[in-house]
Structures are given as C-alpha cells and as structure tokens.
Nucleic acid binder design. Structure first.
Length: 817
RNA sequence: GCGGGCGUGGCGGAAUUGGUAGACGCGUCGGCCUUAGGAGCCGGUGGCCUUGGCCGUGGGGGUUCGAGUCCCUCCGCCCGCACCA
C-alpha cells in the first residue's frame, strides 16, 4: 500500500482557506445570552514592526489552545486581533528614511496579518483594529474628553522626566533606574506644562481589587509595590523665625520625640527663602544647582554618600517644642510626601547615615530587643517600648504609642493621620508625532477648550519633517495648529502634544466587543456579555505599565457609567521567554529563530506544538532545533497512522487484550489532556499524553482491531486539535468525515480505567523489593498476605518477623522489620 | 539590603494529597528496511560493581514505616523592588 506522506504545506493552507471562507471563528454579539455561555480569550496587543517574532508565536499558540478548548466545551469564544500601531519605532524609522510612519506601519500590519493567518490562529478577523486608525482613535479622543469632563484629565506645570534621546517626556513608569525604559538614555528634569490623568484617585481601589483577580502572585506584588501605600501621619513643624508651617509625612509618628533635625528636598520651593539672610545662601544655592542637574540614575541610589547643607534655620518639633536645625539634602525627594522630612537618626537608616556624616545628635526613643548595647544596635528599625519621649508615652509599646501620638497631634492641631502613595498621576503628554492627538484647543478668550465629541476625530495631519525639536513636530504644521475655538469661534491653536501610546492600549479590549459600532465606542449592553476578559495572556514585562493603566481606565469608565466591570482581566497568564543558547534572542547576537522560516520548513502545527511541548509555558525555555524535529515526527506519525487506518476496514476486533489495552489508553489520554487543560496550562504534559496514545496505536497496530484503532486515533486527533489544528482537523476528517472543531470535547470512559488487577509495590523497610499482581477488590489483609508471599520479599525478610506493616490500597505494602 | 521564584540523567523536562524518581521528547547505542536517505520501523540507554545489589532529585541536618515533595540551615542561579520618610 502506498505510503501516505504528511505534507503540512498542502494540509495547512487548505484548512486555513476553509476557515477564512466560512468565517468559522467569527462570533456575534448576543447581549441576552446567559453569562457562562461565552468566553473572552485575549492575547496582549502586538506592536507591528518588521515581522512577528518567536514570542508572538508563543503567545498565540497558548491563547489559541485555550480558545479552542473553550469552544469545544460549548462556549462562544471571542478571540480577536489588532495592532498597537502608534509609537516611536515607526516614527524613528520615518526620521531615518523619510517614509511616512503610516506607510511603514501599514506594511508591518499586512505582514503580521499574513503570518498570523498562516499560523492558523482561530481569530475573529471581523473585529480587527489598529490604534492608529482614525476610526479607532476617534474613540480614544472621546475617552479623553470623558476623563477631562470628569476632572480626571488635567494640565499642570510640573518638573517632569525628559528623555533627550527620544525627545519627549516620560511617565514615571517608563523611567527605570533613571533611564528611559525604551532607549536607555539617562533622563533629565524639565519644567513643562503637561497633561496628566488622575490615576492616584484610584490608588486604593487599584490596590484593593487585586484581591478579586486570578493573577500570578508576583504580578500582584509588583503592582502593590508600585502603588506603594503607606499609612502614617502628617506632622506640622513650624519655623518660628519666618512664621511658616512645614508639614511632613512620616510612617513613624511613634518616633517623633527622636527627631533631631529636619531635611528639605533641593527642589522644595522654600529652600532659597529659608536660606536667605542666614549667611549660608551661596553654599545652599550651589548645592541646589548641583543637585538639580544631577538627576537620574546618579541621584537615586541608596549606596550613595549622604550630602547636604545647613540652611541656617530651625523648626520646632510640635511634641516637645525643641528647635531642630533644617538641612537641604538630595536624599529627600520632592515628589513624595511634602518634599520635607523630620529626621529620626536613631530609627531610620538614611537619617542615621546623614547624622553620622554631619555629626548630628542621635536620640534613641524605642528600646530594642537587646537593650544592653545602647550605642550599638542603631539605627534600630524594629518594635519596642518608647523611652526618652514623654511621661505619658514612655514604656508603651511603639505600635500603641503610634495611635496615641497621632491622636495628640490631632487634638492639638499639630497634625493628623495620613496615607501616602508612591503612585503618581500618569503623565500622558508626548512631544512626538506618531500618536493620538490630544483633542484640545487653546483659545486666548476661553482658555483650554475640549474639541466637542461630534467634531472628533481630530485627525493627525501629514507633515514633512518628523524630527523632534524639543516640542512636538505637530507644532510645525501651522495650517493644522491654527484653528477656531469651538466655544467662541475666534482664532485659537490646537494642542500639539500627542498621547502616550499606553492610552491607546488601555481600552482596546473594550472596542473589540463592539468593534463595528460607528455611533459609539461601544454599547454597554454588549460589554456586559463579554467583559471582563476571561483569560488574558502576555509577557510579564507589562506587569505594571499596561496592566495598571488598563485597570485604571476600566474603573474610571465604570464610574462614568460606560460599563459595569470593575476589572478588565479576570485571569492573567504570563508566558516565559524563549531563549536560544541560554540567551535572549537578538539580531546582534545572531541567535534569532525566525517563525516564518520555521513555518515554511515544518509547518505551523509543528512550530506551535513544539513551543507548547518545550516546557511549562510560564517558564523561560531554550529553543532546540532537534526538539522541533521530534514534534514534527510525532505529528507525522499521528497523521500517517490516521491516513492508513482511515483507508482500512471501518470495523472489526483484534485480540481482546489488545483492544482493551488500546481503549484503556484512549480513555486515559482523554482524561489526562482534559485535566491538564482544566487544571493549569500544562500543554507540555498534555501533548506527551497524546504521544503516548499514538505510540500505543503504533505498538498494537497488528494486534488491535480496526474499531479500537479508529477510536484511539479519533480521540488523539480530537484532543490534540488545540495544539496542532490543521493536522488534527485533517486526520479527523480522514477518519470520520466530520469537522473536529464542530465536535464536543470528548469525555473519557472512566469505566475502562477500572482494571481487575493492578501491580502492587512491595517494600521492605521502605525499599522496593518486588511487585505482584493484586486484585482490585483485595482488602488490607489480603494485600498484606500477598506482599508477605512475594518471592523477593521473602528473600529479604530472611525469616525475620515483621514489626509493622503499612498498607496503602491501590498502591503498595511496606513491611518494617 | 528587602520580597518572590528556581536547583531532578548527556539535554528539555515528568512525578494529584508525602507512597514504584526520571513519563514524554531530544541525543546516543544496536538492529530492521532501502540503490540511497536529512524518510520510516523495532529495541537499549541515571551512575557503580558480576546475576542480585548499592548509590542517586544543589550541600548538610531533621520529621516519617516511607521525603524530589514537609521543617531547619547553607550554597548557587534567575526575577522584581531599592534614599518613597
């Protein structure tokens, strides 16, 4: 008989064409459908540049397996696709080549789309979107207007982080170790008038609602740390010489009596005023100037020597009336708290280092666990009883004194309980071209005026020169900038900043639900059907930025009445990276695996199944060409056996033992794959189970009958379909004439797994000595008797009397002598 | 420094609640088929000594009839945070 050959290059395009023609993966909106019948599976929005890389192949291999599994289990699955298409790479490319960012972006999108289709991912293409499409960013602008009207978007003059390389300001989240997260250039401080979104209003809800989502614990921890909620008190220190009150934030009001000096940030607006007339002006001015130019990585390091200058003034500690000296030092940050601190060197490491450097007094006010060393053991940051404070507090545990001192402050008008956050408002202005225009007009008469919704979108104009010049290139488009005020009709000028592209990607998952709606961003009733996303999949690199912003948008939009969900993503899965030779793939290393080449050579099924087989998908994994070959051989064997068996008799029995063994293996494999998909994302062990089943068919090819072999291969094709859809659809059709994706997920026949006998493990003193066949119905006593009679057990007992016998029915017997 | 994760054959990795360590795949060795094969099929493969054992899940210690799994401790690697008062 002729050898059927597995030919993915013939099989895969054939099924892809059918799925495209029949729009198999499109799903309609049924707002009345009961929840639970639908499922929203989403991978993070890709940024189209060049062509898809191996990380894309992984995220869609995982997502598509989930989507298929959900569909086969009776759910209507929303699984859409789009592109995060605004952004700097396309713009930088335009500066270099003169090619319009729109043109290069469209080319990249076309290539991404072509390859995604070639991968055979089950996408509802009718909902495809690109964030640079006016039909999309019209609604980005509408959301901005909503936030503006609600007071959640505002403009403010502020010292911001400026990237000299990318020529734009950055959000705090986009600055890592004082460097631009994108390009690595050291950021500078600039005073600019910028647009912010009031994410800090949502700090507590963003924190609390983490409890309600099924996310990896480390991602939740990262978000908690980023929000950085601290409970403490605001305490007022008065400068009697100038008659000004200076509030500070502290998390340790219990150490208030230990404050021996006071420190202000170099950026604090009152520094110069305080130094004036103190005789120290020159030194202070020099220090402040140096600190301000020394922003970035240099300044924000805990290792650094403490520096500072005495301001020549004093403030009064409200609890004991003590006058303490005021310093300016760069270890105090203007952005956090009030930009000034009370320093308690005995109980704070930083204050202690500063006190050492400037020879300032250190007063211990909390007893340590080991009170014998009074000079040593400082700074002491642990708990203990108060001392050297005030008669009414001394001797009390510091946690108790915490509240009592706050109460005293409140009663005496010197302070109050307070909560501070590390989280800052989200700076969304960007001085770049290829982004969503901020829909605002500046009018000399009416001030800042939003462009009315009915005039949206504010279209991004075409320009000649993309090079940034310290302000947005849009500012040069004079005929675009000059406009009329929507309010008074007089001459006015457009806002020339564009939005951070993270704004675009903070709501795309909402648009997918109602992507074709031309009259609104979405219909809230439609969102009720799909939101929140049931399973979100992407890289852990977005643990803070994208995921925090998207959560904020959903909460804000809920408050504005546009949707019901509290959280965008009910479940999150973060996939690990694929490396090669133990290192991240990069062009400079020359260790890049091209998905296109892999698919051309082995087919999409092999590439996808291999990526899932390589190891647990949440872990990093190293690419191996040989491993890929192994999976290719497996798919070939599955397909070839199916073709051979399909061409043979429809029914017939083989030996009863072989038929039973094959049917048992089939039931086992169905159960194993189902459990691995249900329980966790254990695709690697699921695929291994299918391999075992296929190996079993191969082994029993001559002994088992056609019926059992067909059942086994049908099951194999059916449960392997989520990982290798084309080969399995083809094999299933050869065997049954039916479409596997229209079949329900198979159920394992559990009765087949109940065997009459099993292999009983016999141990002596915990060591494996023999195995005997035991009836499933045997009770403990019978099992013990069987084990004691096992030949090798008898040999090892060597006449000794068992002291104790442990029987684990269904497993083993352990005899202790 | 603080927080989290990980450490199993030559390699990637398996191992429900503590119960046969190494499933599955790669590599490798041997065989079959073939004019040939970058095709396919069958079998062996943790280490050490002769069957039978002994030793083996980063090192050391503990709990237990029994530990890769639980506890303590040390070592190594990875990730996140890091002057946030």
């Amino acid at each position: 008989m002729s050898q059927a050959r597995y030919d993915p290059q013939e099989i895969e395009p054939r099924w892809q064409a059918l799925w495209a023609d029949e729009k198999t993966w499109e799903v309609d909106n049924r707002p009345d459908a009961d929840s639970g019948s639908s499922s929203y599976v989403l991978e993070m929005l890709p940024y189209p540049s060049g062509e898809p890389h191996i990380g894309h192949l992984k995220v869609y291999s995982v997502g598509d397996a989930v989507a298929h599994f959900q569909r086969r289990n009776g759910r209507r699955v929303l699984h859409p696709m789009g592109y995060d298409a605004f952004g700097l790479p396309a713009e930088n490319h335009a500066i270099k080549t003169g090619q319009h960012p729109r043109a290069s972006t469209e080319e990249a999108i076309a290539e991404f789309q072509r390859q995604f289709r070639r991968w055979g991912i089950s996408i509802d293409w009718s909902r495809e979107l690109a964030t640079c499409d006016p039909a999309y960013y019209r609604w980005t602008q509408w959301i901005f207007n909503q936030l503006l009207a609600a007071g959640l978007a505002y403009q403010r003059e502020a010292v911001v982080k400026w990237c000299p390389q990318d020529q734009t300001v950055l959000a705090n989240e986009q600055v890592v170790d004082g460097r631009c997260e994108r390009c690595g250039a050291e950021v500078e401080a600039r005073q600019l008038n910028q647009w912010f979104l009031r994410i800090t209003d949502y700090a507590d809800r963003l924190l609390d609602d983490l409890e309600t989502v099924e996310w990896p614990e480390h991602v939740k921890t990262m978000q908690r740390n980023w929000i950085g909620r601290s409970e403490g008190a605001e305490v007022v220190f008065r400068c009697e010489e100038l008659g000004i009150d200076y509030p500070v934030f502290t998390t340790r009001p219990d150490t208030l009596f230990g404050a021996t000096f006071f420190v202000m940030a170099p950026e604090h607006p009152d520094v110069e005023r305080l130094a004036e007339g103190s005789g120290n002006e020159e030194e202070v001015r020099a220090y402040v100037n140096r600190a301000l130019t020394e922003q970035g990585a240099m300044r924000e390091s805990a290792e650094r020597e403490k520096t500072g200058v005495f301001l020549g003034r004093h403030v009064t500690n409200p609890v004991n009336g003590e006058e303490i000296p005021v310093y300016v030092a760069d270890y105090v940050l203007m952005e956090y708290g009030t930009g000034a601190i009370m320093a308690v060197p005995a109980h704070d490491e930083r204050d202690y280092a500063f006190a050492q450097a400037f020879d300032l007094p250190v007063r211990r006010v909390i007893e340590g666990e080991n009170p014998e060393g009074d000079a040593d053991g400082l700074p002491y940051t642990g708990d203990g009883a108060l001392t050297a404070s005030a008669p009414e507090f001394d001797g009390k545990p510091n946690r108790e004194a915490f509240g009592e001192i706050v109460t005293w402050l409140e009663d005496n008008g010197k302070g109050h309980a307070s909560v501070n956050y590390r989280l800052r408002d989200w700076l969304v202005s960007r001085q770049r071209y290829w982004g969503c225009p901020i829909p605002v007009v500046h009018c000399p008469q009416c001030g800042t005026v939003p462009v009315p919704d009915e005039q949206l979108p504010v279209l991004l104009p075409d320009i000649e020169d993309y090079a940034p010049k310290g302000q947005s290139p849009l500012a040069a488009a004079e005929e675009w900038v000059a406009t009329e005020c929507p309010q008074c009709g007089g001459p006015a000028r457009r806002e020339t900043d564009t939005m951070d592209t993270f704004v675009d990607s903070s709501w795309y998952f909402l648009r997918y639900c109602d992507a074709l709606n031309e009259g609104a961003a979405w219909d809230p009733a439609v969102l009720r059907e799909w939101m929140p996303v049931d399973q979100y999949i992407g890289g852990v690199e977005h643990a803070i930025l994208h995921l925090l912003y998207a959560r904020f948008f959903v909460k804000a939009l809920k408050d504005l009445g546009h949707l019901d969900a509290d959280e965008p993503f009910a479940r999150l899965f973060t996939q690990g990276m694929i490396t090669r030779d133990g290192a991240k793939m990069s062009k400079s290393r020359g260790n890049v695996v091209s998905p296109r080449e892999i698919v051309e050579r082995y087919g999409a099924d092999t590439a996808r199944a291999y990526i899932l087989f390589i190891g647990p998908p949440d872990q990093d994994a190293d690419w191996s060409d040989e491993g890929l070959e192994g999976v290719h051989r497996f798919l070939g064997r599955l397909w070839r056996l199916s073709a051979e068996v399909a061409a043979g008799p429809v029914e017939g029995n083989g030996s009863p033992e072989a038929d039973a063994a094959l049917r048992r293996k089939t039931a086992w494999a169905i159960g194993k794959v189902t459990a691995d998909m249900d329980r966790r994302f254990a695709f690697n062990t699921a695929i291994a189970a299918v391999m075992e089943l296929v190996n079993e068919v191969s082994r029993l090819r001559d002994e088992a009958g056609p019926s059992a072999q067909r059942e086994a291969l049908e099951a194999a094709a059916s449960i392997c379909f989520p990982f290798a859809p084309h080969a399995c659809a083809d094999a299933y059709q050869l065997l049954t004439g039916r479409r596997v994706w229209e079949e329900p997920w198979p159920e394992a026949d559990l009765s087949l797994l109940e065997a009459d006998t099993y292999e009983l493990v016999c141990q002596v003193n915990g060591k494996l000595r023999d195995r005997v066949s035991a009836p499933s119905s045997a009770d403990d006593a019978e099992l013990e008797a069987l084990a004691l009679a096992a030949p090798n057990v008898v040999a090892h007992l060597d006449g000794r009397e068992p002291r104790k016998v442990i029987v684990v029915p269904g497993k083993l017997v352990n005899i202790v002598v």
